[in-house]
Simulated assay, not measured.
Amino acid sequence: MSQKTSGWIMKQTWEDLLFLHWSVNRSWLQSMLPPQLEVDTFDGKAWIGIVPFEMTHIRFRGLPPVPFASRLLELNVRTYVKYGEKRGVYFFSLDASHRAGVSIARNLFHLPYFRAKMGKKREGNQISFWSSRTHKNANKADYHIIYEPVGEAYETTKGNLDYWLTERDRLFIVREHNVYQGKIKHHKWPLQQVDVAVLRDTLSQTYNYHESFITHFSRSVTTYLWPFEKLTKTPGSPIE
């Protein structure tokens, strides 16, 4: 990772991560976004992704990992957007298995996290990952997927679709009509091809899902997260 990591506030390791993406109509996707953000496209196509993974070694800067809160499972639905010349990720939802982690993310970072009952099981290289949303007053969403990486790991090349879908260094949220960015740094994803079987899915129905999807797998990457910055007013001001 060429960028300096000074100033980060949280460190995490993401493990057994699957990217499952499908293309969608650009105009439809724009209607799903806050008006402050613009759909980002690759060769004219807009994309939505579902990303299940395990998060471990979670800690805030200057503090040791908390034993009962240093790992969780997560399942997010995301897309790719622009704010001016800045490109990043926008999350429609993030389901997680840890009640306190969900509460912190919703209240401190204002991200759309939801509590869920989740599980992960590995048999050899095959991973079974399942989730059932339990968050009060939230839409129900169940997801069960089996995936198995195949072939050797490789690094993405800038200009290719797999690089465009995976190598993002910021996320956006919109709160009270203001746009905020949160920067994320990590080494380039070590990606592998992956065989996938979706066994149950009531999560993606809202997002024009179709089975012509593309997939990538990454075994592990360590990430650093920075405080959110407000972009619509004074850059560098902390999230309110």
Results as ranks from 00 to 15, higher is better:
residue 58 I to W: 02
residue 202 T to D: 03
residue 49 G to H: 04
residue 205 Q to V: 04
residue 61 R to C: 01
residue 41 T to A: 02
residue 191 L to M: 09
residue 139 N to M: 09
residue 98 H to K: 09
residue 141 A to G: 14
residue 129 F to V: 00
residue 53 F to D: 08
residue 163 Y to G: 02
residue 69 A to D: 15
residue 95 D to Q: 13
residue 207 Y to D: 00
residue 220 S to T: 07
residue 148 E to D: 06
residue 130 W to L: 07
residue 25 N to Y: 02
residue 64 P to N: 07
residue 153 A to D: 03
residue 74 E to Y: 01
residue 95 D to H: 14
residue 223 T to S: 11
residue 229 E to N: 09
residue 130 W to Y: 13
residue 157 T to D: 03
residue 105 A to K: 00
residue 230 K to E: 14
residue 225 L to F: 14
residue 89 V to Y: 03
residue 240 E to A: 08
residue 210 H to R: 06
residue 140 K to F: 08
residue 183 K to D: 11
residue 134 T to W: 02
residue 191 L to Q: 03
residue 92 F to S: 06
residue 220 S to E: 15
residue 195 D to E: 15
residue 53 F to T: 06
residue 92 F to P: 04
residue 74 E to T: 03
residue 228 F to N: 00
residue 213 F to P: 04
residue 161 L to C: 02
residue 1 M to P: 08
residue 210 H to A: 00
residue 68 F to N: 10
residue 165 L to H: 09
residue 77 V to I: 14
residue 193 Q to F: 07
residue 103 S to L: 14
residue 45 K to N: 10
residue 55 M to W: 01
residue 222 T to P: 01
residue 217 F to H: 12
residue 130 W to E: 13
residue 20 L to W: 01
residue 126 Q to M: 14
residue 17 L to R: 11
residue 14 W to T: 05
residue 95 D to T: 07
residue 122 R to W: 02
residue 116 A to M: 04
residue 232 T to C: 03
residue 40 D to T: 02
residue 133 R to I: 06
residue 10 M to W: 02
residue 203 L to Q: 05
residue 69 A to Q: 15
residue 194 V to L: 07
residue 177 H to V: 00
residue 240 E to T: 13
residue 154 Y to R: 11
residue 162 D to K: 09
residue 211 E to M: 07
residue 87 R to C: 11
residue 94 L to R: 10
residue 232 T to P: 02
residue 44 G to Y: 05
residue 234 T to I: 12
residue 138 A to K: 08
residue 184 I to E: 04
residue 237 S to W: 06
residue 110 H to I: 05
residue 205 Q to T: 07
residue 56 T to M: 01
residue 110 H to E: 08
residue 141 A to R: 13
residue 5 T to L: 12
residue 37 L to V: 05
residue 201 D to V: 08
residue 48 I to N: 02
residue 193 Q to Y: 10
residue 219 R to N: 11
residue 172 F to K: 04
residue 28 W to R: 02
residue 232 T to M: 04
residue 173 I to L: 11
residue 83 Y to T: 12
residue 107 N to T: 10
residue 154 Y to L: 05
residue 216 H to K: 12
residue 167 E to T: 04
residue 163 Y to R: 02
